[in-house]
């Protein structure tokens, strides 16, 4: 398309317009995060109308001394356990789905595709009732099971995509040598598809880390709350403790930013594969 490059004044104007457009986009995309980051280091008490200009760590000190670390620990426990469970389950399911032909395979795969788009808002009522009857409200195990179920369809989908790129001859050779299927999966397949597992785990962790609805319905005990619920503790009926909210938001977002960076490309190809092929 280089031949279309306009020359002279028109070109200058066009390049200026392109840069301006880029700058507007950049400001729109970055400003909210920038203001939260900035605000988290400012002294914004509830009564104060404007900040005093200096920067301070007091918001962070305040939230962690008032128990924010409990939410962080709860989130870590729930999300890491659910991610581990989902990835283990998905590894075997993806292997089974990609290596064997059996009756009902299409149905299982179709359900997994559908599960990715399943509206959890309509599962909240039945799961709440079942959990309430089973004494699973305010239970981390209950939340872990829900999150495992919530992320499994996409992790299976990602891993099936990954497994189809690994030649079947590899595991068949091992089977001929007398290895069991379990050995094949853990000793041969897992080391090869480690990048795929990392992508699936990152995705699962991110999904559960920002989940709000199920946590809202299933957790009422403050000592059990996860970060998304904990953040909204600072929104009072009249006043908002903005300093605390913003420091808490930064703490909630830093891990997702760090995890997202290497995942970005994989997610795009995973989500829209088939369309872009």
């Amino acid at each position: 398309m280089d031949t279309q490059r306009p020359k002279g004044l028109a070109g200058l104007i066009e390049n200026g317009a392109l840069l301006t457009g880029f700058a507007i986009f950049a400001i729109f995309l970055l400003a909210p995060a920038f203001y939260v980051f900035k605000g988290s280091f400012e002294n914004l008490s509830v009564s104060l109308v404007s900040s005093d200009g200096g920067w301070t760590l007091s918001n962070y000190v305040n939230i962690f001394s008032s128990g924010y670390y409990v939410y962080v620990i709860n989130s870590l426990i729930v999300c890491i356990t659910a991610t581990f469970l989902a990835c283990t389950i998905s590894l075997f399911a993806a292997y089974g789905l990609s290596r064997f032909r059996f009756r009902g395979r299409g149905l299982v795969f179709g359900s997994i595709m559908g599960g990715q788009f399943f509206p959890w808002i309509i599962l909240v009522n039945p799961i709440f009732i079942l959990f309430a009857r089973g004494g699973m409200i305010n239970s981390q195990i209950g939340l872990i099971l829900c999150y495992t179920a919530f992320i499994t369809p996409f992790t299976i989908y990602l891993l099936v995509g990954y497994l189809t790129t690994i030649p079947k001859s590899l595991d068949e050779a091992a089977i001929v040598d007398g290895a069991s299927r379990l050995t094949v999966v853990t000793k041969i397949i897992l080391p090869i598809m480690w990048p795929g597992m990392v992508a699936a785990a990152t995705f699962g962790f991110l999904q559960s880390w920002s989940e709000y609805l199920l946590a809202l319905a299933l957790i009422t005990d403050d000592s059990m709350k996860t970060i998304p619920l904990g953040l909204y503790q600072y929104f009072g009926d009249v006043n908002v403790d903005w300093g605390a909210v913003m420091a808490g938001s930064v703490v909630a977002t830093v891990p997702t930013l760090l995890l997202f960076l290497p995942l970005q490309k994989k997610l795009v190809s995973g989500l829209t594969s088939g369309a872009t092929k």
């Binding site: 909210p32 995060a33 991110l206 920002s210 998304p228 938001s249 909630a252 977002t253 970005q264």
Partner: peptide, 8 residues
């Protein structure tokens, strides 16, 4: 914005 959780 992509990595920012919706709650944040």
């Amino acid at each position: 914005p992509w990595a920012t959780p919706p709650v944040v």
